[in-house]
Amino acid sequence: MSTIDLNLVRVFVTLYDARSVTLAAERLHVTQPSVSYALSRLRALFDDRLFVRSRDGMEPTFTAMQLYPGLRDSLAQIDSVLESSKEFEPRRSQRRYRLALTDLGEMSLLPRLLAHLHAQAPDIELEVVPLEIDKVEDWLATGKVNAVICSRPISSAGVERRVLVSDERYVCLLNREHSFIGDSLTLEQFIQARHAVVAASTGHGLAEDVLRERGLQRKVSLKVSHFSSLPRILQESDLLAILPERIASAFVREAPLKLLELPFDVPLFEVALHWQSHTTRSPAQRWFCDSIVEAIASA
């Protein structure tokens, strides 16, 4: 096989990521029969089924798994080169951007970020993808998202990083009228109290790491997926929760809650923007990342 149609490569990579002909067609803005026809051509080219239907969708064969990294990276490089030659005018753009963000980010960063973006590019579309910290490296590599905002560093090769919020810290949040905790919190009280914990997929697990390193165990009574549910939960219970100080302070202003220092040391942390370095060849991607940095810096 000496040549392969670039459109077939795009279908292969999209189908591999989506694991669904229907989703692949939606992402490519083509019909399902078009994706099916492209898949039949790919099967003939590689003399392999490539994808097999299962209860979980279109599962890749061993050959497809071998082909995917090279084709994905090659396609990303080609797209990057093509994008670099295009002019980008924010005010005329109708481009769609995807940003991975936690619900904390949605509450604290998204309003001013969206206002800043739409002031320059009123017709762009921003899709916020709920952050799953274990998947973001793959999301960036495959182009599922344009950028990621998170507190956990992403150390993969080819990923650039810009700090948006520095010297952030974790605190404890609880009901203002908690039955046995006053204006300060001892380690013994912390261990004996019941806790609400937010899913590790948000990337906010630094305090948990410190507790684990010190061999400290607490009573976890509730696990939730999002920080946004905490104010109502805490004000109607005797649970404690650990969360970043900035958003905890906002919750205190809106609900009968109090913020206390943690009874153990947790390092300060940063919230940063991450993106795939080769994508900055694209003027549209470069504008998007620069605008995010500008929006947060101007707050």
Rank of each mutant, 00 (worst) to 15 (best):
I4Q: 03
I4E: 03
R10F: 05
R10I: 05
V11N: 10
V13H: 14
T14I: 03
A18D: 15
S20K: 05
T22R: 15
A24T: 03
A24C: 05
E26N: 14
L28Y: 02
L28R: 05
T31L: 02
V35M: 11
Y37M: 12
L39Q: 05
S40N: 06
R41V: 09
L42Q: 05
F46L: 04
D48E: 10
R49I: 14
R53F: 06
M58L: 13
E59F: 03
E59H: 14
A64D: 09
L67M: 13
L67E: 02
D73G: 02
S74N: 06
A76F: 02
Q77G: 03
I78N: 01
S84E: 08
E87A: 12
R98F: 13
M107H: 11
L110D: 01
R112K: 15
R112I: 12
R112L: 05
L113A: 01
A115M: 08
H116W: 14
H118S: 12
A121I: 10
P122V: 09
D123L: 14
E127M: 08
V128W: 11
I133Y: 00
K135F: 15
K135M: 15
L140Q: 05
A141N: 11
V145F: 01
V148Q: 11
S155M: 09
V163D: 15
L164S: 02
V165W: 09
S179A: 15
F180M: 06
I181A: 00
I181F: 00
I181V: 12
G182A: 07
D183C: 05
D183S: 11
S184F: 08
L185R: 01
T186S: 15
T186A: 06
L187E: 09
E188S: 10
Q192P: 07
A196G: 01
V198K: 01
H204D: 14
G205P: 07
L206S: 06
L206M: 13
L206H: 11
D209C: 00
V210F: 07
L211A: 04
G215L: 03
Q217G: 02
R218P: 06
K219Q: 13
V220Y: 05
L222R: 13
L222S: 08
V224H: 12
S228Y: 10
S228I: 00
P231T: 05
I233R: 02
L234E: 04
Q235A: 07
D238G: 11
L239V: 09
L243H: 07
P244K: 01
R246G: 05
I247M: 15
R253E: 10
P256M: 01
P256C: 01
K258C: 07
L259V: 03
D265G: 00
E270Y: 04
A272I: 00
H274D: 01
H274P: 13
W275T: 04
S277D: 11
H278R: 14
H278G: 04
T280K: 15
P283Y: 03
Q285T: 00
R286E: 06
D290P: 08
D290N: 11
S291L: 14
I292H: 02
A295S: 08
A299G: 07
